[in-house]
Structures are given as structure tokens and as C-alpha cells.
């Protein structure tokens, strides 16, 4: 074989090697891009999408539940069954006209927790009670304007079934006639997500972080913490599909869907 011919063959082999290398590199780059996109799309963006806000006062439900009798002691319903909204100062002022708790001393048991609670109460009394100003609570379950939701229907319907642990597909809990605790109904939809765990609000010693979608302005409790939208429990999220799913599950006939105008206005 002459010199130039050999060089040509070597060149062709080099070109073949090069194109295979480029293809492998492209495949690798594409693979990396997919992983990066998935990482950004599923883990980073959802974190960036929601604000991180603390409530004005870190209300301790657990302490208060030891004194009162159930959720509706403070989360009041009117005589016609409609929900009166977030508790107001009028409901707190009887006990909290002045600071009630005692400032803990360094070295006391649970010093840091008790100090935080003490400071919260001082803030509540000084900034809101004494000024006659309502606390601007951030509402976890605030629905869009187009939604009509009736607490009266959900709290009183004899057809409403409390499912075990609020789990989708779980069997209904059998209560003695008239013995169903009202909180069981509340907990079907309202749970406090603290450090990734769902806790009944009545047992929570702190309030969950409030996270609001920057674009839609809806709280994360509406879409849910699972970005895929798949849920295990009814309280995981409160999207239209979740309401429709629960309405469907609660019906014995399992026939068709409700009309749009049942929950929309």
C-alpha cells in the first residue's frame, strides 16, 4: 500500500472514531441535561415557586385545646350553619387582656420553647390586644374567588363519611350514633404540615410555615406538597380534582360527577 492511500484510510478511520465520539458525547450531554432538568423541575423550581412566611403570632393549638372543647369553640359557626371565619380578638381578649405566662428563667426545663411562647404572647398583647388591632392571620385553606364552599353542608351532612385516617380509599370510621367528634370532620381536610409530617391542628404546638405560590397567589395547601399532584390523603391538597374525588367517593351510587355549579360561583 502506498503512503498516501494509507494516510487516507487512517483519516477515514479517525473521522469514524470522531463521529462515534461526538455521538457518545451528545448522548452523555443529553442524559445529563435530562437529569439536570428533572432535578431543577421537580426539586428546585417547586421550592422557588413558593414564599416562606411565618404567621404574625406562632399560635399554640395544643395548649388551647386543653382548655376549650373542640375546634368550634374558637372556629365558630353561625346559627345558620355558615362559618364565621378566622377567630377574632374578641374571642381571645377575655384571657389575654394582659400577658398571662411567666417569663422563664435560663436553666428552666424547655427554656427556649417556653421563652418563644412567652415572647409571642407579649407580642400578641402589646401589638394587637392593646392596640385593638386584629391579627392578620395567613389563611392556609384560602380558596380562589370562583369557589363556593359550604361548611354547613360538610359539617352537618349525614351522608358525609369520615374515612379512617383521612386516607383515600380507607373504610369509613364507625361511630356510635351521635358520638362522632366534630374534629374528625375538620381533620379530613385541615391538617398542619410541620417538618413534613401531617399533624391535626388541635395537637400542633406551632403553626406551619405559610407558603404562597408567587404566580397564582394560592397557598401550597391548595396544590399540595407533592408536585406531581398524587395524594394519599384527602387533606394533602384541596384542588378541584381533590374535591371532585372526595365528592365521588362519598356518594354511595358512584354515578357521574356533580355539575360545575355545585362548587363554583
Amino acid at each position: 500500500m502506498s503512503g498516501p492511500e494509507k494516510t487516507q484510510q487512517n483519516g477515514a478511520a479517525h473521522k469514524k472514531d470522531d463521529s462515534a465520539g461526538v455521538f457518545a458525547m451528545s448522548l452523555f450531554a443529553a442524559g445529563i441535561s435530562v437529569y439536570v432538568s428533572l432535578f431543577v423541575g421537580w426539586l428546585v423550581l417547586p421550592e422557588l415557586l413558593y414564599s416562606r412566611q411565618h404567621q404574625p403570632i406562632d399560635f399554640n393549638h395544643a395548649i388551647h385545646m386543653e382548655i376549650v372543647d373542640g375546634c368550634t369553640s374558637c372556629h365558630v359557626f353561625r346559627e345558620d350553619g355558615t362559618f364565621a371565619g378566622t377567630p377574632t380578638l374578641a374571642q381571645c381578649i377575655d384571657c389575654h387582656e394582659e400577658v398571662q405566662s411567666i417569663e422563664p428563667e435560663p436553666g428552666d426545663e424547655d427554656y427556649e420553647v417556653r421563652l418563644a411562647q412567652y415572647l409571642d404572647e407579649v407580642k400578641f398583647v402589646e401589638e394587637y390586644v392593646q392596640q385593638g388591632k386584629e391579627v392578620p392571620w395567613l389563611i392556609y385553606s384560602k380558596q380562589p374567588d370562583c369557589v363556593f364552599f359550604s361548611h354547613a353542608a360538610h359539617m352537618t351532612s349525614h351522608k358525609f363519611k369520615v374515612l379512617e385516617g383521612g386516607k383515600i380509599g380507607a373504610p369509613p370510621v364507625e361511630f356510635e350514633h351521635g358520638e362522632e367528634p366534630e374534629d374528625a370532620r375538620c381533620n379530613m381536610c385541615h391538617m398542619a404540615f410541620i417538618d413534613g409530617e401531617a399533624v391535626p391542628f388541635g395537637e400542633a404546638e406551632t403553626l406551619p410555615l405559610y407558603r404562597r405560590n408567587w404566580i397564582t397567589t394560592y397557598p401550597i395547601d391548595i396544590w399540595g406538597r407533592n408536585i406531581s399532584g398524587f395524594n394519599d390523603h384527602y387533606y394533602d391538597s384541596a384542588k378541584m380534582d381533590d374535591c371532585a374525588q372526595c365528592h365521588y367517593d362519598q356518594r354511595n351510587d358512584h354515578q357521574g360527577q356533580d355539575a360545575c355549579f355545585v362548587c363554583h360561583k
Binding site: D80, T82, C146, S150, A152, A153, T156, F261
Partner: peptide, 30 residues
């Protein structure tokens, strides 16, 4: 507050004041 305000780019029409039905049914149900 019982009727959602519309935005640009969508269609609207008479609803037979359905929000009144919702309120009335709510009370009757209760």
C-alpha cells in the same frame, strides 16, 4: 362576594342567579 368577578377574555351569561340557589340550599340543607 357571592358572584365571582370576570376578567378580560372570557364569556359570561345569565346564571339564573345561581348563587342565590346556593345560599338558599345551604340553609335548607342545614
Amino acid at each position: 362576594p357571592d358572584v365571582s368577578v370576570r376578567m378580560r377574555g372570557i364569556v359570561e351569561k345569565c346564571s339564573f342567579c345561581f348563587h342565590r340557589y346556593q345560599r338558599a340550599m345551604d340553609r335548607a340543607f342545614y
